[in-house]
Design a protein around this nucleic acid. Structure first.
Lengths: 189, 189
DNA sequence: AATGCTTTTTGTCATTTGACAAATGATTCT
DNA sequence: AGAATCATTTGTCAAATGACAAAAAGCATT
């Protein structure tokens, strides 16, 4: 919980009473490897915060290949925004790729907090828009670089991820095959 | 101006007085082909809205290659958010690729409006976060598809752009060379 | 029409990556 | 330890793309 409070306070100030209100609504939950936090075809009902572990967001393209859109690691929010905000079906799976310890807020509690704690909305907006910008910054350069550069960028962006998850996920994140990734790794070392 | 009002009202309601306040702060400006709306190394000082024309955002990667990050066409906001919001130097060029007719707000006016018109902030947040999400949705799939598919996606996303700008920009957007793009076009037709 | 200028297409060859199959390595379970 | 399972690497060949140069096409100006 401490981690979450610290995280929040990076984006704005709240008094102890407000922080307590928020804390009270959070539930701790363990999500096991391969379990879904939210699924394609369903409406996202929760907001999460990763205390420990790694989650990925993935979907299936029109050829049926599984594509990993991005990874989310410790001390970050997890929510399928498009689906959560607009109550529409998601087209992505949000899946634990290691065992995860999380804080979870139900949609109702999350919305209540936004109504009750006025400055909370501004903070959430900051958090969300920073996260969105970060995603763009991270994904965009992947288009215009060769696979080796992409892999090196991945290592920089997610320094704590590479040894904790299957290479196949990294390959699908980079848009290359597992064997290509394997060859790239061989050439780097 | 009518276009801008319409655009705004998609995201929330404002009364006539509020709309007038906003209108009064907007300046119309023509940006000629190849001119910059904002530049790398400088701090973005304005928010724009494209009435007519096409703008692109580009940067130079570590090999010195020019990479087009995305295109912005009619009836969309133009602002280098990261730079504008945080008063930090941008690392991207925002450049007209056709002659453009725009509405422009100075940073001061833009911020004043946010203070004066309370519901305006929520609307701007919605606009920005929708734009950010759109960017991710558009760029992200480019990573995992082959070049032909990427070109077809480009055509879908920007149906009104392809015949109005040089192919070299499209190639750099797709992360391929001009000659590859040329060959792809040949195979499609 | 002729001239320059820029954009786009082609051609050739080298390199990267994909597809598929097989081999090796790691991990878990009994 | 052995078997089963899954993850990773390697091998081979085909296809896609890049690099570079040259040709062709398009466009504006005269």
């Amino acid at each position: 919980m401490k981690e979450f409070i610290e995280y929040i306070l990076q984006f704005g100030n709240l008094n102890q009473q407000q922080l307590d209100l928020i804390s009270k609504k959070a539930t701790e939950r363990v999500l096991h490897k391969d379990e879904y936090f939210s699924e394609a075809g369903k409406i996202a009902q929760e907001v999460g915060f990763i205390l420990e572990g790694i989650i990925r967001v993935c979907y299936y393209n029109n050829k049926g290949e599984e594509i990993t859109k991005y990874f989310i690691d410790e001390n970050n929010l997890v929510v399928d925004l498009e689906s959560f905000d607009n109550d529409i079906c998601s087209n992505a799976y949000v899946q634990a790729i290691t065992d995860c310890k999380m804080l979870v807020f139900s949609k109702k509690d999350w919305k209540d907090l936004l109504d009750i704690i006025i400055p909370w909305e501004a903070i959430v907006n900051k958090i969300i828009s920073r996260a969105l910008r970060q995603k763009i910054e991270r994904r965009s350069p992947l288009v215009s670089e060769d696979a080796t550069t992409r892999y090196l960028m991945f290592l920089k962006i997610y320094p704590n991820v590479v040894n904790r998850i299957p290479l196949s996920y990294i390959a699908s994140y980079l848009g290359i095959t597992q064997s290509s990734l394997s060859r790239i790794r061989k050439n780097i070392h």
